[in-house]
Design a protein around this nucleic acid. Structure first.
Lengths: 186, 186
DNA sequence: CTTGTCTATGCAACGAGTTGCATAGAAAGA
DNA sequence: TCTTTCTATGCAACTCGTTGCATAGACAAG
């Protein structure tokens, strides 16, 4: 399971509360991992029990107090160990592909709208990633810090997200062209 | 949940047993969906109870008897209904990306072997998909059938798998170059 | 003044998915 | 002959992940 390790990485990059983690999982970490706040709170509890994270109560004004988590040596060691274990390459699960093959037993043209909707979502995601890249890495406003390892690695992961969205958009174009052709031939 | 619908699509393309479905999920359907035989047997039981599939006992020689499943009108209707419902675009979960960002807190160069291993797996998958494409769609040996809708749709899904593997290989190249550069700079 | 949104945490129930194990006959290779 | 592999199905136990609900104060918009 990698959720624990994704949390360790995120907390090492910057300590924070379960709530903050949940929001990070909607943004930058969401490029390659998703999790709901329920999952995060539950896993944080377990990790606390295992000594992988430590908690500090932080009182706040104008909003509820929060529990700020950070990573002690034991957590770092757990991450380190996992990094040295081989993992299985991902297997994809793509509902839309199931629908496309299923459309052979229904009306393929009825899928066009759905595919267009997905196209829009991926267009938005790509724009969001590119904005993040300009802001943090390539733009004139990007902090001109000395190249550090963490920054380089974050950038290469972001480039992966960008490549994924571009590939997906090109494929959805192919899908749309195919669906239009099938409709015309009928 | 799309496993039920993936099974309906597969059984509509060709009726078969739970065992045969499990093997299809390792091959062609595995481009976009994975499932173990346990999951498939359990879901088939439930689908049988719901009247989405019907069973026929098929005695065999030299091997155990099997239960061949096929899809009656009720199952077709269930698939049809699902096809007309909108679905959420996928969210990715990529363990390797977690590792790459995590490597900032360990030794990035130690990841090189792991990334190379993934590169090999994706190279093999791409070769496998391309062989399937030549065999079934583009090669001289491909059955010269009249273009039918199901075939076209299967092909466009396969092209998606091919595009995914090519994109992944290009990204892994980028990752390797980054890791080598970081090692050289150190 | 009420409704909605944001921060912040959490429980309970359910469904999805994995892992280990079991059975059992046939065929193939060491 | 023994071990392994393939076909074929299934149970039990477990972990992972989602959905619905609950609390509660602060703030903004209508």
């Amino acid at each position: 399971m990698a959720l624990e390790h994704a949390i360790l990485v995120s907390l090492l990059e910057k300590p924070g509360s379960g709530y903050e983690l949940a929001r990070r999982f909607e943004r930058s970490i969401g490029y390659f991992w998703t999790a709901t706040h329920q999952q995060i709170y539950r896993v944080l509890k377990r990790m606390e029990g295992d000594g992988w994270v430590t908690v500090r109560e932080v009182p706040q004004q104008g909003r509820p107090d929060k529990k700020e988590y950070s990573v002690p040596a034991l957590g770092r060691a757990a991450l380190s160990q996992w990094l040295h274990e081989p993992i299985e390459p991902e297997s994809v699960r793509h509902d839309l592909a199931v629908k496309i093959r299923g459309a052979a037993f229904d009306d393929p043209a009825a899928l066009i709208r759905e595919v267009e909707r997905h196209y829009q979502v991926h267009t938005d995601r790509l724009a969001h990633y590119l904005a993040g890249e300009r802001r943090d890495f390539t733009g004139p406003e990007a902090p001109a810090l000395p190249d550090d390892v963490g920054r380089e690695l974050q950038h290469v992961v972001l480039r992966g997200g960008i490549a994924y969205e571009r590939m997906t958009l090109a494929w959805l174009d192919d899908v749309l062209a195919t669906l239009h052709r099938l409709r015309a031939e009928r």
